[in-house]
Design a protein around this nucleic acid. Sequence first.
RNA 1: GCCCCUGUGGCGGAAUUGGUAGACGCGCUGGAUUCAAAAUCCAGUUCCUUCGGGAGUGGGGGUUCGAUUCCCCCCGGGGGUACCA
Length: 948
Amino acid sequence: MDYNTAEIESRWKKYWSENNTYQVSDDTSKPKYYVLDMFPYPSGAGLHVGHPLGYIATDIFSRYKRQSGFNVLHPMGFDAFGLPAETYAIQTGVHPAKSTNDNIKKYIEQLSNIGFNYDWSRSVKTCDPSYYKWTQWIFTQLFDHYYDKDKDKAVSINKLIQKFEIGGSFSVNAAHALEEDFSAEEWKSFSDVEKNEILMQFRLAYQKIGYVNWCEALGTVLANDQIKDGLSDRGGHPVEKRAMKQWALRITAYAERLLNGLDLVDWSESLKAMQRNWIGRSEGAQVFFNIENNDKKIEVFTTRPDTIFGATYMVLAPEHDWVEELTTSDQKDKIDTYISYVNSRSEIERMSEVKEVTGEFTGSYAINPFTNERIPIWIGEYVLKDYGTGAIMAVPSDDDRDKAFATKFELPIIDVVDKTDYPGASLKDKVGKMINSDFLNGMEVKEAITAAIKAIEEKQLGAGKVNFKMRDTNFSRQRYWGEPFPIRYNEQGIAEALTLDQLPLMLPDTDDFQPAGGGKSPLARNTEWINEEAGYTRETDTMPAVAGSSWYFLRYMDANNPNELASKEKIEYWDSVDLYVGGTEHAVSHLLYSRLWHKFLFDIGIVSSREPFKKLINQGMIQGVIEFIYLQKEKGEGGQNIFVSQEVAQSNPDIEYAMIPVHIDFISSYGSKDSYLDLEGLKKFTKWWPSYKGAKFVSSTATYTDGGEDVDINMVTKSEVGKMSKRYYNVVNPDDMVEQYGADCFRMYEMFLGPIEQSKPWDTNGIDGVSKFLRKFWNLFVSENQLIVEDGTPSAEEMKVLHSTIKKVSEDIEKFSFNTAVSAFMVCVNELRALKCHKKLVLTPLVKLLAPFAPFLSEELWNKLEGEGSIHHQEYPKFDESYLKEDSIEYPISINGKKRASAMIPTDATKDEAEAIALGLETIQKWIEGKEIRKVIFVPKRMINIVV
RNA sequence: GCCCCUGUGGCGGAAUUGGUAGACGCGCUGGAUUCAAAAUCCAGUUCCUUCGGGAGUGGGGGUUCGAUUCCCCCCGGGGGUACCA
């Protein structure tokens, strides 16, 4: 009866699965609790030790909640559509469905090895037709709804058509992109194609021609967050802007609700800040400027309407629609030259040369509506086409960029804000007194903003307006491995949504995953599929991965329902996610889209909660240490590769080196600052990477040539903390850890590493401590193959140890402080060992207490104690305050805040009694000798401080 | 630049509403056991010290009887975001 992890784990894994120990019922008599992990993308590399960090935390928490009497839903599934599987298919010919399913199998096995309590009967995978049927259905609903601003919710598009028939577009207050209004009569006169185009400007899922980030190498459109520094995040390929017809979701219609909803949820401030930042609400005014000799009016958005008297020129984005019209004949050449210059510049250049000011004068003038001065209209790169209206009123006295522009092109500058009362304030700070501004003069900026908006509205020049930074991001991907859009086009090219009985629209099978060219997905070549029904063609783009992950948490509630995305009753019961744990990498896209879909499903009556995730914890990343060796760029004689150790490289700063990542298995003292490759490591390295055969290795003390004579050499490597990734050969696999130490140890060690939110590099330095703890725990029950648990009444001291542990552990779980909970278990075991306590009445509650942390060990011990059923259905112990009471407490006694002595003082002592004991102490007497006691502070159960 | 987080022994990290700084673990030192090693057990481990004590939670200042905790300024590390009008 030794503590044999492998044997115990395989036994109970089998038992749990055969007895459906973790199957969740929809037992509505119990209070529900929904604990969710962000489901993983099943990548070919498998799980690494970083993934389980959050999963272990939710596993502990869900087990704790179940034992505490809740009906707990804790499911797991797979975000199974996505680019990596398709890239892999192009490279190897293996169908994404096959590689994805293989990977999922591997993931499930790895997850089960760690002992997670998922109910696999509720699992989902986004690439399963029975799942994406509902992803497609939600999309059709988005397509069939528009956003009614009066009702502040999504409303059926049929209602919109009725309104158009009665009052044209004038009768509608909706989120839209319509350019010109129309009457009821005009509506009736429009052709079907025209009507459809207008409705597209209102639908929540709609098509638009937009500039997209096209990546030729990947053959697809990328989202903004898939691009880093102008290159694709994956692969680092160049990305260009290209005009394409794309599906988009009108997320901007929900901007205000997405922003306000953040006040309802218990998320970290930093995460909320990220979403607020992304939504980017700013208050200001929309103002129309008349153009000289033209009927058009330029619309601008400004957050500083107070500075309008200082607006001495205007700037349009170079891509603004009116640039051509506003350019006068004598400026045409210059404008054309400038525009072609702008077009020639890559995204990277534009971003890296932000400081440089460029622009050109169109030749036209606008009129400042407050000063009635003619002001020149320029175009300039610093004004962006897709923010605001793509045009600005420039106030060079109060904006850094306008100022730089005006200075360079010698445009007039009028000071309108006097900041002499605010010495440290920068130009953009909204403080100061208005000057040179007529009726605003003398007002403080904040006051002036309100007054200016009022004046703008009275003069009918515009209105106060709220602007959002957030854009409607596009929803089309030119890929195979995604959900097909449930859309078909009729002979006139009008898009129609498929009806529920036509869903799911299956992704056709193929063995050719190459993009079709011309920005089309591989589906575009499948003519049979495209033209499935006479007179109709199918949409060939597919949805982005974010589609399937936007609502998966609802499907878990009723995962196998063929008739609905989930039944009404089950959605009512499970309501929304009580606890959601996942990484920050999804802070914006996934969490924002999920919230959007949820709010939309709320509007159409599918869900009844306003926010999908009540509490959210961002687990930190477990990073890897990347070990590099320096390769001299210049090769030696005969093309010999020369590697040098860290100190040699650092003492030769003139020589250029390439950093070659080394597999961490070859490294000695891995993870420490002075990790190195010894002779054996070097031999493994050259064997593993044959192109470095015969290489020379130089350290500060020795030189070794591969294949030559053995030398005593230590090559110090460069260690960097970074991502754990296949590419850096630094992936640590949880399977190895589980095999070596056992799943319980692995779980508790990951929790013991530190706070769950914190990122930290993986190291196994402390794992022995946890392993020792588990063995000590086991030895409280078992010794020399005998169960040594005794009957008998525990002493007061033993009960105190038990109950203080129950208290500490429960409180720590409630506040997600798992590292301190593990530490409390260690303290407890140390104390019980010191007391030589083996009493059943102490140990039985302790097994239940440990069960969420170490499910295998505790199940085994529960079985040995002849407990009934599974430990994981036993009630969690509750602490009893009466065992924690003490007659007297050791008080620290300080003189002037500095601790000088301590004394046992009865718990119920009054201030005077305590003071008398403290002052009577010999050590204290010595300190206060010859000094006057000014004051004595007594904090019950805490401390005594004597002020002299 | 702006926003958010963060800074405590050799290391990972503890410290309720401000109340004994360094819990717990690793590592290290000494000892026991052993032919020896591993494992295990016991003791010690913030730094300085003339052994009285002194200093100490990134640095400087402040509030307080008392500050890792609250306030102000500065420095370092991490993340997000950006010609956003």
